[in-house]
Design a binder for these strands. Structure first.
Lengths: 317, 317
DNA sequence: TAAAAATACTCCATAGGTATTTTAT
DNA sequence: ATAAAATACCTATGGAGTATTTTTA
């Protein structure tokens, strides 16, 4: 009843112009092939071939079908290949979410480039959101993987992979007494308690509590409760507010690459509790194969980066 | 083995999200449908659905297939419709040949317009050639139907249909003694013997002997052998040569609509042997359905035209 | 006469039906 | 407990094989 087999048989006969040879080519006998051709003609109620004593000749209707038959068979093959690629995670789309600060970390652009090279049939959709929305998006399956700063709880079907851990630095207004003097190097790292009396500008807690709480906790350990001058909706915005002289803030190392007018940077005395993690969160189950590929590659690349860094350290030592 | 039935079943389940309802919709029972879906998944070696306690949910691979499956099924339906239209002569291409003088006959543009309206899926390919090439083209099946002037022999598998019979007129150089004086009406028809001493310009015999021989024969009947000044490769060219003052010629009525600079027209005394037929030739067998439609319509339209003319004559009388 | 397609029949693989069990909430 | 899918088994349609006849240049 007009299925793919009919089209395959029809095409073979059309191209050979001869049922016997076509049957041979298809690996069957002449009579069943003749029958199938006849059945197809009856099904369509159309004469597809003119029977000549030395073979079969396409009618106009047959020629019309020949074109479409080729396309349809080609389309079937393509569809099949696409399904198989999709199942292997080599085709599809991955929605990658991230918080505002993540894309400044060199890991992200590198990973996006590598992934695009390795999986050219997979498109990446990039979306910036607050951590809270990212987690909701993961749950709602509108996002496949999300780069977040705070250590998202692994509960509720999410799994979290550590990508990188960065030290933090202090951002001060240019004209602040603690700011390094331009041209003079070698300012020693600040201790957190030096900032006890400064107004703090922090990333808004409800957009992503992890980062906020991390800083508060560190300050508490240093013996003071920071005075919150302002909360900002994006991590970069905190730097803008610093530039405006409204206070000081702490930010992950990779944001130092932003050379903002009016902002001075100083390192912090290292504190193992005060570091900015970069994590990749995803659903523990239910992810598409392409998303799985993405997370796999991210983890592998994170491991490779870490190994290279440690190796580099060893070589220097 | 990945045929159309699989795709139809797959789509039904994908859209219903439920094997039982999909089976109902397809007019079969649930178990065989479950089996076919499973067989498809095994054939492709891909998981297409996630089995949930309240139905089936597409995987990413399934979603990828869904898109293609729709296209393929649509393409199948279209192919089927196209084949059927082609067989009915409602789709395809008809190569229509004609000699240089034919398109000046109002029948041709009218027929082309009507045919285009009635058979919008049939394209017409128009080709101008000499009668000899047209007949060769019909034989070689590079042309499906040809408008010719001369009465082509019906032999050799060609059939010929009379479309119209036109009177002939005389074309003279402007300054010729027999030319009608501008502004003065009512010049009587010329007799052919009045042209006995004039140099004749004729359509080249080897391009289409019928027309040439027709004129020679008429002259002979009128008691003279025409002096051939020149032969021209197209019927219009003969008028151009008349304009250049090289001689006189005879042409079918419909060419009078060309108002050529330097050419004067006079009617001829009616001579039943000296008329310009317009014929449509085609292969007696082996024509495509679309070509058959074209010839049918041409004949019907010719009959209608003739009837209208005779009817008009009766009304006037 | 000969090459190719059509016909007649036989067989079996498999699509589809019925009855039942398994699964996951 | 329930809705839905999976499994087991049976039936029969029709695709494919073998042997033979028909067709037409």
């Amino acid at each position: 009843m007009f299925d793919i087999r009919h089209l395959r048989y029809f095409l073979a006969v059309a191209e050979e112009g001869n049922v016997t040879r076509a049957a041979e080519q298809l690996g069957l006998q002449q009579p069943p092939l003749s029958q199938q051709i006849k059945a197809l003609e009856q099904e369509l109620d159309v004469q597809l071939f003119r029977r000549k004593p030395r073979g079969m000749e396409l009618t106009d209707a047959g020629r019309a079908l020949q074109v479409d038959a080729k396309h349809i068979l080609g389309h079937m093959a393509k569809a099949r290949a696409k399904v198989e690629r999709t199942a292997r995670g080599e085709q599809g789309n991955v929605v990658v979410g991230f918080t505002s600060s993540a894309p400044f970390h060199p890991f992200l652009p590198r990973l996006f480039r590598l992934f695009g090279e390795r999986f050219p049939h997979v498109s990446l959709t990039l979306e910036e959101h607050g951590t809270t929305e990212l987690v909701e998006g993961l749950r709602a399956e509108t996002i496949d993987a999300a780069f977040v700063r705070s250590p998202v709880a692994e509960s509720h079907g999410l799994s979290v992979h550590a990508i990188s851990i960065e030290p933090m630095f202090v951002a001060l207004p240019n004209n602040h007494p603690l700011a390094p003097v331009p041209g003079v190097d070698n300012f020693p790292p600040l201790a957190l308690e030096d900032l006890a009396d400064e107004p703090f500008i922090l990333y808004r807690r409800h957009t992503g509590p992890g980062f906020y709480d991390l800083i508060i906790a560190a300050c508490n350990r240093a013996g003071f409760t920071p005075k919150i001058a302002q909360e900002a909706p994006r991590l970069i915005s905190t730097l803008n507010l610093v530039a405006a002289g409204l206070g000081v803030t702490l930010a992950p190392e990779s944001l130092r690459s932003l050379q903002l007018e009016g902002v001075a940077y100083r390192s912090l005395k290292s504190d193992p509790g005060l570091t900015a993690p970069l994590n990749l969160a995803c659903r523990a189950v239910d992810h598409s194969a392409a998303a799985r590929r993405f997370v796999e590659m991210a983890r592998a690349e994170a491991r490779a980066t870490k190994a290279a860094k440690e190796d580099g350290g060893n070589n220097n030592a």
